[in-house]
Nucleic acid binder design. Sequence first.
DNA 1: GTAGGTGCAAAGCCTTTGCAGCAGG
DNA 2: CCTGCTGCAAAGGCTTTGCACCTAC
Lengths: 161, 161
Amino acid sequence: MEQRIDRIKKQLHSQSYKLTPQREATVRVLLENEKDHLSAEDVYLLVKEKAPEIGLATVYRTLELLNELEVVDKINFGDGVSRYDLRKEGADHFHHHLVCIECGSVDEIQEDLLGEVEKIVENDWRFKIKDHRLTFHGICYRCHEKQDTGEESGSEVKEMN
Amino acid sequence: MEQRIDRIKKQLHSQSYKLTPQREATVRVLLENEKDHLSAEDVYLLVKEKAPEIGLATVYRTLELLNELEVVDKINFGDGVSRYDLRKEGADHFHHHLVCIECGSVDEIQEDLLGEVEKIVENDWRFKIKDHRLTFHGICYRCHEKQDTGEESGSEVKEMN
DNA sequence: GTAGGTGCAAAGCCTTTGCAGCAGG
DNA sequence: CCTGCTGCAAAGGCTTTGCACCTAC
């Protein structure tokens, strides 16, 4: 974790940005919640616990900056808010999402499932792929199990991570 | 075109909605611009040419309704606006997008490229897929040709529809 | 006459921006 | 000082909602 912060710090410095306390707090929140897909508001609330004086605008500005530096990906599941997802270091961004329409959970698939598909697209459509977004909507295994055991579904779920 | 409108009309009636003149004008705009990915505002401006008195709110409400009826898909390319894409009739929604980061064009791939991938997801993650979104970001063949001046254009590009 | 649909304007949300103050070189 | 960064509040942009009127059965 410290190493990662250090690397992000260097990355910032290399483009003459600073790792201010607010930025560091924001990055830490992202690292600590790496599995989640936090909205700016979510990040804000979590950062406030560490740095109560921070403003929402700063969080937005920091997230925007991290997005430009390709430290995070800004993603959108169609629910009206942007979410921010830490990139795996070094990896040419390759991860997909499973969004449960029952409980709203979002799981990640790190594995690259699109190798073949990308070859087809690049050849048949002569399209030079730089990035992709793949999201499946459906029912996650947890909700599946709930239904199979006759349990009530849905209304109480909070966090699935 | 008339047949399609007729079917949409029946679909509306079957759920006791009406195909009002405003709704019909909106649907016609969508049919006439099937290849595009219009925003609500785009649709509004086009509909206004046929039915100048229509309000933006009605367009939003109509698009929302058509989305619920699965006549259109509401999609989002991360540029801050929702876009509306007519579904191919009968098809279990399967189409993907190629978004050019150079010129902003959006091409569609109707072909289902995810058959194998979906099997893997359903088996390995026990996730029951209901829908998916697949978008590639990169450089389209048109921009490619523009850049590589004097390139031999050997292979044919596949039909986009 | 009842229910659904419409236009307009207002309100809602998420996000961005303007600005004065602040911090570190 | 100068530059970059911050917090606050205001403004923006897209979308939804409230409401009175209208229209079709």
